[in-house]
């Protein structure tokens, strides 16, 4: 019995260690309705795949230039000679004019060094499961399994449903990593197939929530309490973003909400802001709008950890 329902997969990462118990395989689904400007994965936000450029991998038109031959929009240009760290010589690389680009993806198909690539690809459940199954042994040794993440995986709720159902059928531990921002009606059918929710709480103040992430916190909290009522384990994830949501008031409110989850609360995971995603903005032609701030120090993270622990929570950092 083949399961051929398909979805847009942004990435699959095996051997992830911090996204639920044990060794896991993460399935990142494309698309997110939020627009957090500190996002470390901006290329996963769009609802369709996008053309991305990673200039360091370009081998130069002297040796290649295949993309120039196939681009019908004349959106690709040669740069001035630039030094390639990989080839250790000056090359004439490629730059993309996004105003002319139609995102047809033809160039990515011939770019073997992957300097031009498409951010997602369509995969069916069976294709995904084939990869997931490869590490079954490691899941069994560590209590790991599959984690569906995004983007916001609930943008592709039907595909997420199929993946979770198939994983449970195969006896795997399942986790769903969500920001809680879609209608409750979409969550309900999934619930029997989710062993653990990784649930983001960013900003509780409704006005600030709408301003910074583009969704009212009331929807997020409504879904959260509904899940808690069903007694499904929840790991609350709090990204700690300096000057956006790291004020004591917000954090204390989150901690109080966690308390209300009762037995459903598994633990609280604090995720310190980092800048590893910044270069990704450039790759897809976006500007990184996050004001320059330093990632929270170890000391600061410990302080926040204590704050949550005072409410009796089991807290992990990172």
């Amino acid at each position: 019995m083949k399961n051929e329902s398909s979805g847009l997969v942004f990435d699959i990462q095996r051997y992830t260690l911090h996204d639920g118990p044990g060794i896991r395989t993460m399935i990142f689904l494309q698309g997110c309705p939020l627009h957090c400007f500190w996002c470390h994965s901006p290329d996963s936000q769009s609802f369709v795949g996008q053309l991305a450029v990673m200039p360091i991998l370009c081998v130069g038109v002297e040796d290649c230039g295949e993309c120039l031959k196939v681009c019908k929009q004349k959106a690709l240009n040669k740069t001035k000679p630039t030094y390639s760290k990989i080839l250790k010589k000056d090359i004439t690389a490629i730059s993309l004019d996004r105003n002319l680009c139609s995102e047809c993806g033809d160039c990515a198909k011939v770019c073997y060094p992957k300097a031009l690539y498409f951010t997602s690809k369509s995969m069916c459940v069976d294709e995904v499961m084939k990869i997931v199954e490869k590490d079954r042994l490691y899941y069994e040794k560590t209590g790991g399994g599959i984690t569906i993440s995004g983007g916001e995986p609930m943008v592709q709720n039907l595909f997420a449903y199929e993946l979770l159902k198939e994983s449970k059928y195969r006896g795997l531990h399942t986790a769903l990593d969500t920001s809680g921002c879609v209608d409750w009606g979409k969550y309900e059918p999934l619930l029997p197939y989710v062993d653990l929710f990784l649930y983001d709480l960013k900003i509780i103040d409704d006005e600030k929530s709408s301003k910074f992430i583009g969704v009212s916190s009331s929807v997020i909290l409504h879904n959260l309490f509904n899940i808690a009522e069903k007694k499904i384990p929840i790991q609350i994830r709090v990204p700690v973003i300096p000057s956006i949501n790291d004020d004591d008031e917000n954090l204390k409110t989150i901690s109080r909400i966690c308390k209300k989850l009762g037995d459903s609360l598994d633990k609280v995971q604090l995720l310190p802001y980092h800048k590893l995603g910044t270069s990704k903005y450039e790759r897809i032609g976006l500007e990184y709008k996050m004001p320059p701030v330093d990632p929270p120090s170890k000391f600061e993270m410990q302080r926040i950890k204590n704050l949550f622990e005072r409410d009796g929570h089991n807290v992990i950092v990172g």
Partner: peptide, 9 residues
């Protein structure tokens, strides 16, 4: 691969 929580690059 460098890994930080919830993210690898």
């Amino acid at each position: 691969v460098v890994r930080v929580a919830g993210y690898s690059a």
